[in-house]
């Protein structure tokens, strides 16, 4: 039974990772062939860094991802603070609404944002470009931040906000000094999640970016429509590695904050005994 389940897990992992593995291998292939391995080269990586279009859209992607994730972390955290103070009914309602953009197909979000921007474009001198793209990214990032921060309020040691006020801090100072450190892990994981989602978003960016603000996924997409160059393999490999690193960092951090909690729980269990 155990063997069977191990086999099953390996199969699943195989299906998930073989395509990526193949892509990584071929990013080092000397010829443009996608079936014959003929030798090892870093040529495609070198070419990649000479390709101005790619470098420019990489720059765009990073700027957008950084800006969007910072702003949405701020907005999402503030929203979570507000929601955590609501009554039971209000909380359930707002969290429900918060979840809609997450479940909603991206294409719907993308198209509706595009229509909204078209509407404003006609009325004000608003062009599709950095601003529209940024607004769009913030829109789909915020719910993830809220979702990451909310549980921290529930796990928070009760009454510490009041305890800080009891010891002489005003409301704002109390929040900064005792509440913020407690919800920080949630804020950081929310930020990282927003950052990765912004980094690899295609559908929504496709509808909301302008010619001057193309992001990497869109550039890759248009490149594959012309001719498939192994540069794309190289590029995708780099993106994959970056995303894996971000995820690993996030997991390590979560594990760490979990361990502290767990240690404390073990301790109290001992006392009860």
């Amino acid at each position: 039974m155990k063997k069977l389940s191990k086999l099953y897990v390996s199969l699943v992992l195989l299906f998930l990772y073989v395509p990526i593995f193949v892509m990584i291998v071929f990013s080092f292939n000397t010829t443009k062939s996608r079936s014959v391995l003929s030798g090892f080269t870093l040529e495609w990586y070198a070419k990649l860094f000479e390709n101005e279009l790619i470098l420019k859209s990489l720059g765009n992607t990073i700027i957008i991802a950084v800006c969007a994730s910072i702003i949405s972390t701020l907005l999402g955290t503030l929203a979570a603070i507000g929601i955590s103070r609501m009554g039971k009914f209000g909380k359930a309602t707002v969290l429900g609404i918060n979840n809609i953009p997450i479940i909603n197909p991206e294409i719907v979000t993308g198209v509706s944002l595009m229509l909204l921007f078209v509407f404003f474009k006609a009325r004000m001198s608003m062009e599709f470009g950095f601003t529209t793209l940024l607004i769009a990214h913030i829109t789909f990032d915020v719910p993830y931040v809220v979702l990451n921060v909310m549980p921290k309020f529930r796990q928070m040691t009760p009454h510490i906000y009041e305890a800080a006020q009891d010891l002489g801090c005003g409301p704002f100072k109390s929040f900064i000094k005792v509440v913020l450190p407690e919800i920080m892990p949630g804020i950081i994981s929310g930020f990282l999640m927003a950052f990765t989602f912004s980094l690899d978003d295609f559908v929504i960016s496709y509808f909301t970016s302008g010619p001057t603000s193309q992001t990497l996924p869109i550039t890759i997409y248009s490149m594959t429509r012309r001719k498939v160059s192994p540069e794309i393999n190289a590029l995708s490999t780099i993106i994959f590695v970056v995303v894996v690193i971000v995820l690993v960092v996030k997991n390590i951090m979560e594990r760490r904050s979990l361990n502290v909690k767990k240690y404390a729980d073990d301790d109290s269990a001992e006392i009860i005994e």
Partner: peptide, 18 residues
């Protein structure tokens, strides 16, 4: 509360974990 010369020991202690 922060202007009162009164301090509280809370039911579940409410120590600052960090």
């Amino acid at each position: 509360p922060y202007r009162r010369n009164v301090n509280t020991v809370f039911q579940k202690y409410a120590l600052f974990p960090h």
